[in-house]
Amino acid sequence: MKCPYCSSADTRVINSRPSDEGASIRRRRECERCGRRFTTYERAQLEPLMVVKRDLHREPFNPDKLLRGLMLATEKRPINHELLRKFAYSFEDENPTHEITSEEIGRRAMLFLKPLDEVAYIRFASVYREFDSLERFIEEIKGLKDQ
């Protein structure tokens, strides 16, 4: 495994343990060159989940990409990051087909965030729904107040 800090290929596993109820293995690693530690997750991948984008091209689902979006939306909010990680990595396990649209991913993420934190929900919605005006943004906020 290549070190994310110095790009050295000389890393060693310090600790391994099951994660996500046995669906993955969490490994703590240490770089032999720079001495920094980092965590990796190993999962079995039978057939990759493909994301159908708005322009209809397909790309492999990357849970880290979704997790980054969720982390940005929840920045400085009182939300457990492990909960976000579990949600992002659940798409591959819960999807009955091998394809999912980017719109469906965004819709599920918004449904996940809405009861957790309204501010994070609005932050995520502002990117996902591509608000083109202040009025659309205000409508979304009013929709939250009405519920």
Rank of each mutant, 00 (worst) to 15 (best):
M1L: 09
M1I: 04
P4R: 12
Y5I: 02
C6K: 04
C6M: 06
C6I: 03
C6S: 07
S7C: 02
R12Q: 07
R12D: 02
V13E: 12
N15W: 09
G22D: 07
G22T: 06
G22M: 09
G22S: 08
S24V: 07
I25R: 11
R26I: 09
R26H: 09
R26A: 10
R26K: 13
R27W: 09
R28V: 15
R28M: 11
C31T: 11
E32K: 14
E32S: 14
R33E: 14
R33K: 13
C34Q: 13
R36A: 04
R36C: 03
T39Q: 10
T39V: 15
T40M: 06
Y41R: 08
A44V: 06
Q45Y: 04
Q45V: 13
E47P: 00
P48N: 11
L49K: 10
V51Y: 12
V52S: 11
K53M: 12
R54P: 00
R54S: 15
H57Q: 14
H57L: 11
R58T: 12
R58M: 11
P60L: 08
F61W: 07
N62D: 15
D64N: 08
K65G: 02
L66R: 00
G69Y: 00
L70Q: 00
L70S: 00
M71I: 00
L72A: 11
L72R: 12
A73T: 00
A73F: 00
A73C: 02
T74L: 02
E75M: 05
E75Q: 13
E75R: 13
E75C: 06
R77A: 07
P78K: 01
I79R: 01
I79Y: 03
I79K: 03
I79M: 07
N80M: 03
N80Q: 07
E82H: 09
L84Q: 02
R85T: 03
K86L: 08
K86Q: 13
Y89P: 01
S90I: 05
F91H: 12
D93W: 09
D93G: 06
N95G: 01
P96G: 05
T97H: 13
H98Y: 10
I100E: 08
I100G: 04
T101Q: 14
T101M: 15
S102T: 07
E103R: 13
G106S: 06
G106P: 02
R108V: 03
A109R: 03
M110N: 00
M110Q: 02
M110L: 15
L111K: 15
L111T: 03
L111P: 00
L111R: 14
L116T: 05
D117R: 01
E118F: 02
A120C: 04
A120Q: 01
Y121C: 03
R123A: 09
R123E: 08
F124S: 02
A125R: 04
Y128I: 09
Y128V: 11
R129C: 03
E130R: 10
E130K: 12
E130D: 12
E130L: 09
F131Y: 15
F131C: 05
S133R: 08
S133I: 07
L134G: 05
R136A: 15
F137V: 06
F137P: 03
E139G: 04
E140L: 11
I141S: 13
K142D: 12
K142R: 14
K142Y: 09
K142P: 00
G143I: 06
G143V: 05
L144M: 12
L144W: 10
D146S: 13
D146R: 13
